[in-house]
C-alpha cells in the first residue's frame, strides 16, 4: 500500500492540523517509511494466531458503580478561555 501526498493532506485535515506544502512532503516521507515497516510485519506468517487488540496480554479491570468524583467546576473552569452561566463558551457551531 502506498500513500499519496493527497492522502497525507486529507489525514491532516481530519486531524485539524495545518500543514504547509513542505511539511506535507516531510510527513509523506516519514509516513511512507512507517508503511514500509508495516508491510514488513504483514509479511510475517500469523496463521492461527488470534489477533490482539492491545500490546499487553491482560484484560480490562472494572470499577464499581459508585460516585467518587465531586463537583470541581470552579477549579476546572479557572483555566477555560471563556465561561458563562456554568457553560464553556466556544465559537458558534450551527448544524
Amino acid at each position: 500500500m502506498s500513500l499519496s501526498i493527497d492522502d497525507v493532506k486529507k489525514v491532516a485535515r481530519l486531524a485539524r492540523l495545518a500543514v504547509s506544502e513542505q511539511e506535507a512532503q516531510a510527513a509523506h516521507a516519514q509516513l511512507t517509511s512507517i508503511f514500509d515497516l508495516i508491510a514488513e510485519m504483514q509479511a510475517v506468517d500469523t496463521a492461527g494466531i488470534e489477533p490482539m487488540s492491545h500490546a499487553q496480554d491482560v484484560i480490562q479491570r472494572l470499577r464499581e458503580d459508585k460516585v467518587t468524583e465531586h463537583n470541581q467546576r470552579e477549579l476546572f473552569q479557572s483555566i477555560a478561555p471563556q465561561v458563562e452561566a456554568g457553560l464553556y463558551l466556544v465559537p458558534q457551531v450551527i448544524e
Binding site: 480490562q60 479491570r61 472494572l62 470499577r63 464499581e64 458503580d65 468524583e69 463537583n71 470541581q72 467546576r73 476546572f76 473552569q77 452561566a85 456554568g86 457553560l87 464553556y88
Partner: peptide, 25 residues
C-alpha cells in the same frame, strides 16, 4: 447545574485514564 458533573475524565483533561464501569457491563 451545567458542568457540575463534568469531572476530569468527562472534560478530557490531559493525563486521565478511562476505567470501565462494571454496572454498565
Amino acid at each position: 447545574e451545567p458542568n457540575t458533573q463534568a469531572d476530569a475524565v468527562s472534560l478530557a483533561l490531559p493525563g486521565v485514564l478511562p476505567v470501565l464501569n462494571k454496572g454498565a457491563v
